[in-house]
Design a protein around this nucleic acid. Structure first.
Lengths: 222, 222
DNA sequence: TAGTGGTCTAGACCACTAA
DNA sequence: TAGTGGTCTAGACCACTAA
């Protein structure tokens, strides 16, 4: 029935911005209950096809969009799901007082201690992604005690620190000399970066650049 | 109530793979109806936190993931939403019989006509993204008649050709000489590519590489 | 402030699928 | 094949917000 409603809606010729009948009317017209229409319309709203507002009614989205869902797993799980052997190496670890670019990310106005971590994740002993991370030690003091040569910060945080907000960015960078060396590639190689910054309420947790190996692709399907 | 259920579930200490009580039991325990539990749990499943199976019950997802929703608007809308002035230039247009790399994308085994299009989209008269597209003329014969110097294929297809399946890829490339020239940058610059291939049922519609300008970032928030 | 959509109930029946 | 989750109903009440 839900699919029936959706296909009836979708096969009518509506134009961007058009107003749809209210749920109650659609229910009667289509011979089903209001709850069913509500669910069907909620799905369409989730898919970005219509916009719903109390009192305002339901309208076809004025600007059509492609809405995709991206699943970003733990690096270890991603490697293992592809049938690879996962390994991990801590490259560098250092406590520092907020550097300016980190303060900017979190809009901090007083200095705090951050743990800076550089680590390399391997798939079948080949470099897979380079993790460059800053962890807020005021929010996550337990991090001081974690042995990062054994457990990756990636994994420890996922299991121990829930977040309430996460900003994600995807962009391309040119490998600098050091990064290129890690990946056994030439400096200047184009690399996809997955950049994530998380908070719990308003307290900063971590910001991380996951620099992927040359040729890495992020995939999804709709 | 839904939020109440979710927070109660989320604040309990469950481990990956743990089985949750069935909806009926949770409903009684939490003093609400089964429908409400169903909705709350469905939300958690959509968010990738739990997995539900008929007869199998509900389990905490064994491999935690970050699930993000990406909205990819029309290029024109994206530029205008940022307050920019949009413009567009068709660079090249040519009909060709399926080249091998396109046949591979769509798993085609017989030759067909495709329309190859190169176009540049501008924001405030600065190059914004370069569109490199192949349209299947067997599935979309109307495309032969469209004046692509006026309407971009991007926009025409969104408004005229619904798709049933869409594969998305994100990756980084180094600008070749020609691409670099379009963006007034140096060859080898790292560029983010949004790559989309769409079908209607099993018939190919189009495959497009949207090559973004240097420094472009794809953003989302959870 | 009246008109929408959002949430919830209590119950029926169905559709999968693990055991 | 029995045990879960998924969908649907008919109705109540609530929460926004456009006009």
């Amino acid at each position: 029935m839900r699919d029936e409603i959706q296909s009836r809606i979708l096969t009518r010729t509506y134009f961007p911005g058009d107003k749809l009948p209210k749920d109650e009317e659609l229910a009667e017209e289509l011979g089903c209950s209001r709850s069913t229409v509500q669910r069907a319309m909620q799905d369409l709203a989730d898919a970005g096809l219509v916009e719903r507002r109390r009192k305002g009614g339901t309208r076809v989205r004025p600007n059509p969009i492609t809405r995709a869902t991206l699943d970003i797993p733990l690096i270890r799980h991603e490697v293992e799901a592809r049938g690879g052997t996962y390994s991990y190496q801590l490259l560098h670890q250092e406590t520092k007082t907020t550097p300016p670019h980190i303060a900017a990310r979190f809009s901090l106005n007083h200095p705090q201690d951050f743990l800076h971590i550089e680590a390399l994740h391997y798939s079948d002993h080949q470099p897979y992604v380079l993790e460059s991370r800053w962890v807020c030690l005021e929010t996550v003091p337990e991090m001081r005690e974690v042995d990062l040569s054994k457990t990756s910060a990636n994994e420890w945080l996922v299991q121990n620190k829930p977040y309430s907000r996460c900003d994600l960015k995807f962009y391309a960078i040119e490998a600098n000399t050091l990064t290129a060396a890690h990946f056994n590639t030439a400096p200047g190689a184009a690399l996809l970066v997955i950049d994530r910054t998380t908070w719990i309420d308003t307290a900063p947790i971590t910001t991380v650049q996951v620099i992927t190996k040359p040729g890495y692709q992020l995939l999804t399907q709709i």
